[in-house]
Amino acid sequence: MMIELIQVNHQFAIGKKGKERVVPVLHHIDLHVKKGEIVAIVGRSGSGKSTLLNLISGYIRPTSGTIRVAEQDVTGLSEGDWANFRLAHLGFIFQSFQLIPSMTAFENAELPLVLKGIALSERKKRVMELLEQMGVAEYAGHYPGELSGGQQQRVSIARSLMLNPPIVLADEPTGSLDTDNERQLLALIRELNRDLGITFVLITHDDQVAATAHRTVTLKDGYLLNAYGKGAEYSYEA
């Protein structure tokens, strides 16, 4: 099992200290994602999709329950351990790309390698290889402000794949792209899944994206409806 959520609850506390109000967002979530699966999470706005993905990313901690990622219990990890875990196991694709504006495409893409402490000579090869694969090698010296949305998303995907993560998490990855770019991105996701066996968890509003997935799960008001819904019988054989 690549990702396992067992009886996960999450609630936010809002308001001033002492006068907090508790907002429950996720209830009794049980989710299992197998190695090599593409899982799409769908649901209405405010249903808790992003919150769920943020729990798997370690950006927030569950109020209760257990989360296991890549066979490791990550529920109680410290912030520093989470950072190391993310760097080693998770790739991220964001709706708004999240490139650092003062760094070139090359510098943005190499960031995971820099954080890992890999030498520049080695980095160069790997970064150019991936930028090439994403079709943006010629823009290596450009700043994000000098790139189109599609190009920025390719740079950010290059960054997410830099350290060969077994899992890629994506919160509305096509949300800022036109249909052409969206189609290419979905093809790329399928290709990466097929060729490298990367496990994907995607959040989407888009039927196209959902159709790409092996399986779709729906969140409604913080409850996971069809955890074993469409494609529940699917199993990845490899």
Binding site: S57, Y59, E79, G80, A83, N84, F85, R86, L87, A88, L90, F92, Q98, L99, I100, P101, S102, L111, P112, L115, R159, S160
Partner: peptide
Amino acid sequence: AQDIGIMKAIGAHPSA
């Protein structure tokens, strides 16, 4: 802060 947040999001250790 924005850049720091992005770096943390992809796995920068707080001590770094």
